[in-house]
Nucleic acid binder design. Structure first.
Length: 182
DNA sequence: ATTTTCAAT
């Protein structure tokens, strides 16, 4: 991923019309069976500006995971860094996947909270399915920069308000996740 | 082209 794509899409004070997702796969014990170049990578949604039906990035991620044909006997830990939290529909899709694939655990760090429609219930459903959901902090932004960005040796430069935005969004997410479902 | 959260206007 180039520097501008990362900075533009992951800055936590912007509202972009694209969603990027960086992922890392870790197989605990044994040979993964994952092609070596697919243990980490990034994806982007397909919007209405591209041919074909639009598709949220989470569905591409599920497609990619399924293509790996993971060994159900081995535990797989998947960590995602995503510029927007999943929408309600995608959150339920991910939750369903986790229920059907108990050998996969999912940890999501999001830059911003996508807050349209039934996003709150969706995030709670995803959490109840076992996913860890948190807001990206400086540590995660720097990790993504170092891991996924073609940074040409340049260190991660935080933008203004990174920390304060992250803290505010974390409180907001905590409030959502701690609300009891009815 | 602008703005309006995985675009919509």
């Amino acid at each position: 991923m180039d520097e501008h794509t990362f900075t533009h899409n992951f800055s936590n004070h912007k509202r972009t019309h694209k969603t990027y997702l960086c992922y890392e796969v870790e197989i605990l014990h044994g040979d993964s069976g994952i092609p070596p170049d697919e243990d980490k990578g990034f994806l982007c949604n397909k919007g209405t500006d591209q041919p074909g039906l639009p598709c949220h990035v989470e569905l591409y991620l599920l497609g990619r995971i399924r293509s790996w044909k993971l060994d159900r006997k081995l535990h797989c830990r998947l960590t995602c860094f995503i510029s927007w939290t999943p929408c309600g529909t995608c959150a339920r899709e991910l939750a369903e996947f986790l229920k059907e694939n108990s050998h996969v655990s999912l940890c999501i760090f999001a830059s911003r909270i996508y807050s349209l429609n039934d996003y709150e219930a969706g995030l709670r459903t995803l959490q109840e399915a076992g996913a860890q959901i948190a807001i990206m902090t400086f540590k995660e932004f720097r990790h993504c920069w170092e891991t996924f960005v073609d940074h040409q040796g340049r260190p991660f430069q935080p933008w203004d308000e990174l920390d304060i935005n992250s803290q505010g969004l974390s409180k907001e997410l905590q409030a959502i996740l701690q609300t009891r479902q009815n």
